[in-house]
């Protein structure tokens, strides 16, 4: 039974669908204020270039990120999500990123189970000093999502149109 459901849901990812010409993915980047957002600012002040696909949302701590945000992003606007926080042990709020880490593992498993490719949702730890690392992470995530193609079928509006 479970396998059956899984088979159906795996069809969310349609690798055989070719992306329209000039298609660019949209990636939602949810960053904690103290480390990763500051790190992304540093990428800017260092003028390190990265692909323009990411849209950044600021939250105080990665522990503020509700799995709902990830699901909603994939459902509506984004082809992939990146969540980034302080390095484990360096949380501005003492222990928030530990909660976040565990929550993301479970969320990822759930989204995998319903058929999303595991690369649609990515997590990273970027400190306020790691400007170059942030660019590297965005490069990698963008590349991964480009390979996967657009999230055609799962978008809400696509359902509604049919």
């Amino acid at each position: 039974m479970e396998a059956e459901v899984k088979d159906q849901l795996v069809s969310i990812e349609k690798p055989e669908l070719i992306a329209p010409p000039n298609w660019e993915p949209v990636i939602m980047g949810i960053l904690c204020n103290w480390c990763s957002y500051a790190g992304s600012d540093l990428t800017g002040t260092s003028r390190i270039q990265y692909p323009p696909n990411i849209r950044i949302i600021r939250v105080p701590c990665s522990s503020r990120v509700d799995p709902w945000f990830l699901i909603k992003s994939l459902q509506t606007t984004a082809d992939g999500v990146l969540v980034s926080g302080c390095h484990p042990g360096d949380c501005h709020y003492i222990s928030g990123n530990y909660f976040a880490r565990r929550r993301f593992l479970v969320t990822k498993k759930l989204l995998n189970f319903v058929g999303f490719h595991e690369n649609r949702i990515q997590f990273s730890w970027v400190s306020a000093a790691e400007g170059p690392k942030f660019a590297k992470v965005v490069n990698k995530v963008t590349e991964d999502i480009k390979k996967l193609g657009p999230l055609h079928l799962y978008k809400k509006e696509n359902f509604e149109k049919k």
């Binding site: 800017g44 003028r47 390190i48 270039q49 323009p52 849209r55 950044i56």
Partner: peptide, 22 residues
């Protein structure tokens, strides 16, 4: 600025679109 103009200096069109989204 930090999230668009400074990091997409080679692609004004994309940087503008991103700025609109932001």
């Amino acid at each position: 600025r930090e999230h668009s103009s400074w990091v997409h200096q080679k692609d004004k069109k994309a940087a503008t679109e991103k700025a609109m989204d932001l």
